[in-house]
């Protein structure tokens, strides 16, 4: 039951978007976010939307996945829209009742914000849908590696991240076992008020913590036995190779960004 939880939201596939170098994917996503935030009018957003739609179609990931990714932030979107409608007081008045005053500018800005945030979420979901968490960690490590010069422990952070990813299924399995063991001893985990349930969780969390520390200790010994000595002088089995298609993809993203900037300047 708990085992079915998927880590991250990776959606395996063989599309061209999946096969892009993860480092480039991260950079492209950053360019994309910049593009959305520089855009000050609907034409810029249209450019952004066009870019997003092309990428989504190329990734061959069903559209309903993206709709699902919007769902959790829907209340937030709604709130932003309402606040903008209520508090923007410039422009022609559309509707007025007591203290409520809705203006054309207000409506425009709310719609603009909704589209911008929706595109933002869809675009960055595309990154996590098409890149496995472990590849993503790896790419982040390599992108941040210049920071090692100013003593940022990039390798250590990435190592912790990948070990965490590795142990998620193991710990889920263990939680399952502890829950069964506690149930067999008469613990009531699924029943009672919220408070009692929270209290009963302690009976699961404590054994889980104790065993995690033991695991950590054993893993550390096993890593030492395999000559682990931090990040220095390490080579990698996983080779990240950037090919022409990565540069082309990045160029396209930058071109879109440039277009958004140009439109911004013209429309001012």
């Amino acid at each position: 039951m708990l085992k079915d939880i998927t880590i991250g939201q990776f959606f395996p596939g063989e599309s061209i978007i999946h096969r892009l170098d993860p480092r480039f994917k991260i950079v492209i996503t950053l360019v994309y976010i910049l593009m959305l935030f520089t855009g000050e009018n609907f034409i810029c957003l249209a450019i952004g939307a066009f870019f997003t739609i092309i990428a989504i179609v190329m990734s061959k990931i069903p559209l309903k996945m993206f709709i699902k990714s919007i769902k959790p932030i829907f209340p937030f979107l709604l709130l932003t829209a309402i606040l903008n409608i209520l508090f923007v007081r410039t422009g022609d008045v559309l509707f007025e009742w007591r203290f409520i005053k809705i203006t054309v500018d207000g409506v425009n800005i709310s719609v603009f914000m909704i589209i911008r945030i929706t595109l933002l979420i869809m675009g960055s979901s595309l990154l996590t849908y098409t890149t496995s968490p472990i590849t993503l960690t790896d790419a982040i490590e390599r992108l941040l590696s210049p920071l090692k010069k100013i003593k940022v422990p990039v390798h250590e952070l990435a190592m912790m991240m990948s070990i965490a990813l590795r142990f998620i299924p193991t710990l889920i399995e263990e939680t399952d076992k502890i829950m069964s063991a506690q149930k067999a001893r008469g613990a009531e985990i699924d029943t009672g008020s919220l408070m009692t349930r929270a209290k009963n969780l302690v009976a699961i969390l404590i054994p889980l913590f104790v065993s995690s520390f033991r695991r950590a200790d054993e893993l550390a010994t096993a890593m030492e036995c395999r000559c682990y000595n931090g990040g220095e002088g390490r080579t990698r089995l996983r080779q990240l190779k950037s090919t022409t298609k990565d540069y082309v993809a990045l160029a396209i993203a930058i071109a879109f960004y440039a277009a958004a900037i140009v439109v911004n300047i013209i429309m001012k």
């Binding site: 695991r215 890593m223 000559c227 002088g233 089995l237």
Partner: peptide, 28 residues
């Protein structure tokens, strides 16, 4: 060691096998 779960470092089999070699700086 005894518990295989506690000595596997990577989430991909071949990368785990490579772990020691990566540490030793063996070329690709």
């Amino acid at each position: 060691f005894q518990n295989p779960d506690n000595q596997i470092v990577s989430s991909i089999v071949e990368e785990d096998v490579a772990f020691a070699l990566e540490n030793l700086g063996v070329p690709y």
